Computed example of a mutant assay.
Amino acid sequence: MSENEPWEYSLHIPNDLRAVTISRRTLRLILTVHGLIGLVDVAELLAAELASNAVRHTKGPAALRVRWSPPGTLRIGAWDADPEPPEPPMPFEREEEWESGRGLALVRACADVWGWQPLTREGDRGKYVWCELAALLQTA
């Protein structure tokens, strides 16, 4: 598989904060195997924020989805069982806010575009919060 072919992975996440670390590490492996190591750091941060929000703010299952669309768009999204819209991202006004409550503000700051939509998955109502990163690929 090359960066010119689309691919997609989904990871089911239990309602357990330890799943956030597993999600980050799985994403790192996926991007590395597909030769997208230049996106790993930012993508890991975004995936961790999306997965963390899905686990922290809901009681049900969640899922992380990673999709590559040529010529260079990486979409990372998290589904959770809460159909309520996410809280709008707030600007970082105080240094103490940098460590907690930063979720969607970091996503907004680091992603090229982000959004959310209501979604039903396996009979459960919920929402899908996503973001995209554009990759500048080097051709040999």
Score class of each variant (00 low, 15 high):
N4L: 07
N4C: 05
E5I: 04
E5K: 08
P6M: 02
W7E: 09
L11I: 01
L17P: 13
L17F: 15
V20C: 02
S23Y: 10
S23L: 05
R24D: 06
T26E: 12
R28K: 12
R28V: 06
L31I: 05
T32P: 08
T32S: 11
G35W: 06
L36T: 01
G38R: 10
G38T: 09
L39Y: 04
A43V: 05
L46A: 10
A48C: 04
A48Y: 05
L50P: 02
L50S: 04
L50H: 02
A51Q: 09
A54H: 00
R56N: 11
T58S: 15
T58G: 14
K59S: 15
G60H: 06
L64V: 00
R67N: 02
R67A: 01
W68V: 06
P70D: 07
P71K: 05
G72V: 06
G72Y: 00
T73Q: 01
G77F: 00
A78H: 02
D82M: 08
D82A: 13
D82W: 03
E84F: 08
P86Q: 01
P88H: 13
P91T: 07
F92D: 08
E93D: 12
E95M: 15
E95H: 14
E95V: 13
W98I: 15
W98R: 15
W98K: 14
E99W: 14
G103F: 01
G103Q: 01
V107I: 09
D112C: 02
W114P: 00
G115L: 03
Q117I: 11
R121L: 13
E122C: 05
G126N: 02
G126H: 01
C131E: 11
E132C: 06
A134Y: 03
A135S: 09
L137W: 03
Q138I: 12
T139G: 14
A140N: 11
